[in-house]
Design a protein around this nucleic acid. Structure first.
Lengths: 155, 155
DNA sequence: TGGATTTCGGATAAAATTCTCCGAATGAGG
DNA sequence: CCTCATTCGGAGAATTTTATCCGAAATCCA
């Protein structure tokens, strides 16, 4: 039900970059402050996304990170395979080392169709699409400001 | 997509107890060796399941753990609420503090129907049912023996 | 009563994840 | 060439999760 923080940060950062004009490097500092995540930690994640061939990085003045050509078509599953590891979609719900159609845990047959839906969903969500959803203003990428949170609690 | 080890151990242990004759206490040691999980760690989890009112515990000779009366009807969701905490079903995929129909992350609307399916599934799987599935021999609760794993790798 | 067996509960260790710091390399611009 | 701003890469700290250890309390049975 839950992604690691690393995965969440990675997805958020990539969508954020996808909302920005392509070709103009985005600073790690800017991403971190927009998303409200620890900059030094995010920097590490950005590095691994570069190594995973999703991003270009540029040093020095005018440096920053850009999506690689075609990376707007990147799908959430690709990101998660980088951040969660390749066994991400294969793990057994109950933690069994081997859980296949042939020999399975008692949840296997019930879980399988749901897992397939999740995988399908993650495979159809592109950065481009998600970025556009954010640009409309209908959806958020970062937390609500604390002031707003407080007023929600009061009601 | 993934439960904590604690949750996995808890579910496995409870199903195992449910496969045993009710009223006869099962030893922590026995459960741990059957499931092949660390006994001392499992013992901690068993304690919290007692505090969560799913189990009875008995000390001394003939001691061990039994399902509480009616606990065969316990549903996976109840266990997970104990082991993963009450926000288990509420967390946003992208990690936003607030992500509701009113103000949401860009995955929210797509994720919601899947989450509902997951919740429904977890709410309909009782220990009784899962234990029976194991008793038929069709499904497993613990890992395959290492020898079998080795022979699978050879093919 | 005393010994054996088991869970309880607290402290602590180990491992994994999350997060920080800093010097070095790189590149832009004066 | 020098300065400044940025990412890179390695080391390591903090936190959380997973795992271990041990004395104490409870219980059975002889």
């Amino acid at each position: 039900m839950i992604l690691s923080r690393t995965s969440q940060y990675a997805i958020q950062a990539l969508i954020f970059i996808a909302t920005r004009p392509p070709g103009e490097p985005v600073l790690n500092r800017e991403i971190a402050s927009y998303l409200n995540v620890p900059p030094a930690y995010l920097a590490k994640i950005m590095q691994s996304l570069c190594k995973g061939n999703l991003l270009y990085s540029y040093r020095g003045r005018l440096g920053g990170f850009c999506l690689r050509e075609g990376a707007e078509k990147t799908v959430l599953m690709q990101i998660l395979l980088l951040t969660e590891g390749p066994s991400f979609t294969q793990d057994c719900v109950l933690g069994l080392k081997v859980c296949s159609d042939a020999t399975a845990c008692p949840m296997h047959t019930k879980w399988l169709p749901i897992k397939k839906k999740v995988v399908a969903l993650l495979n159809e969500q592109t950065l481009e699409k998600l970025a556009r959803a954010v640009q409309t203003g209908k959806y958020r990428l970062s937390d609500l400001p604390a002031s707003l949170l407080a007023s929600m609690r009061r009601t």
